[in-house]
Amino acid sequence: MGEVRPGNTPKSAETLIRMLGLPFNESLRIEEALTHRSASHERGRKKPIPNYERLEFLGDRVVGLIVSEYLLNMWPQATEGEVGQVFSTIVSTQTLASIARRMDLGSYMILGKGSHSSGERENHSLLADTFESLAAAIYCEYGLETARQVLIPWFAQPLQEILRSLEAAPPREPRRPPVTPEPEAPRSRERGRNPPNYKLLLQKWAQQHFGETAEVRLIEESGPSHQKRFVMGVFLGELLLEQATAGTKRGAGFAAMENLWQKIEDGFMPDLPQRSLPKEPTARETSPTETGEALPQEIPASAESHDLLPDSSSLPVLTFVSEKNNREEEKAVET
């Protein structure tokens, strides 16, 4: 790496351009690409001079274009994934900073006093950014073809290192499409018990209140064949009461019925005319004369209680004979 001149004096931009094998033009683009923001304020006290940041934005695209084009031409049998893996490594901050060090780009950077004192010439990120701004300046001054011829050779060494590391790495297993596990049917909220028969419960509820039958229907089916999604709904006539989504029709239908029954238990009632239950027939009041029955005789309220007793003369006379008299009569007969 070259030495920076004493007093924070960088090497000239002309030296850098001639080192790259290009004819030097009196252009501010190259100096702009090498000027740090700290120096732009120190050198232009009234009006800051342009710095590398705008050119860095363009240089990022220039480097990406020439490197991706080079990889596709050099590696025609590679897949898009393989090319992308190498590309992301070769245009990384680490790789670009290593190329900038081989160019001794830090000794050409125009820094402010504070940045120079803090060692910004060896800053990893700043070196990579300055390389990109230099690529943009070469593109603007000399064209895309010249930029390609000048810059690509600097990528040869890191590219060989990347390819060797990929060859030494164990082969990756081919990616398989993700497998979505079959969703289990929703379980009862009470552990250790079988889930209720929601279909039977809903049928009884619908018949009792509306005189109709609740039905579970398919609303929507989506997704690839290995990852289907089903939307099932519970309908009362044409009215959708509840819906649910799952990986199977059965799972979605069960979830929809369970959710609806929970809502019903919480007081849900759809806005539909309810079935009117038949009234029990009221007994028709009939008079005893219509049935042919005799009217009970009324007891006068003024009658005395003894007047209600039957006449004693009409009662049968009961004669009681003692056991002693019977024995005396039997003895008399024997004698």
Rank of each mutant, 00 (worst) to 15 (best):
P181F: 08
P170T: 06
I110E: 05
L111N: 02
P178K: 15
G84K: 00
P153W: 00
S117K: 15
A169K: 11
G114C: 05
G84Y: 08
Y108A: 10
A137V: 10
Q157H: 15
C140V: 13
L134Y: 03
G143M: 11
H116G: 13
A135Q: 03
W154M: 11
I152H: 12
F131M: 11
P178D: 13
L126N: 13
E145F: 15
G106K: 11
L144C: 04
M103N: 05
R172F: 09
E82L: 04
S118I: 02
E141I: 08
S107D: 11
T146P: 05
L127Q: 00
M109I: 14
I90D: 02
Y139E: 13
V86R: 11
Q85F: 03
I110D: 05
V150H: 03
L96N: 07
R102T: 01
H116A: 15
A100T: 01
T89I: 06
V179T: 01
E122Y: 12
L96V: 11
Q160E: 15
P170G: 00
P171N: 05
S115I: 14
G119I: 04
A100I: 01
P177S: 04
G106V: 03
V86Q: 07
A136F: 04
L166V: 03
V86D: 10
F87P: 06
V179N: 08
G114P: 01
L166I: 13
L144H: 12
A100Q: 00
R172T: 07
R148G: 10
E161M: 06
A100W: 01
S118G: 06
L134F: 00
P181T: 06
H124G: 08
L105Y: 00
S98E: 06
W154E: 07
R176P: 09
A147G: 02
P171E: 06
L134I: 03
F87L: 06
A147H: 08
G143N: 13
N123V: 02
E173P: 11
I152M: 14
R102I: 04
G119A: 05
S133V: 10
P177G: 03
A97I: 14
T180H: 04
T95S: 09
Q157F: 09
S165W: 12
A100H: 05
T93A: 10
V83H: 05
I110M: 12
R148W: 03
V150T: 11
A97V: 15
L127C: 04
E80P: 15
S133G: 09
S165H: 09
R121L: 03
P170C: 03
S125F: 13
P158D: 13
W154F: 09
L105R: 01
L163D: 08
H116Q: 04
I138E: 08
L134W: 00
I138A: 05
E167G: 06
H124V: 13
E82C: 14
F155D: 04
G84C: 00
R164C: 06
L151N: 01
I90C: 09
A97W: 07
L159V: 03
G143D: 14
Y142R: 12
N123Y: 04
E141T: 02
D129R: 14
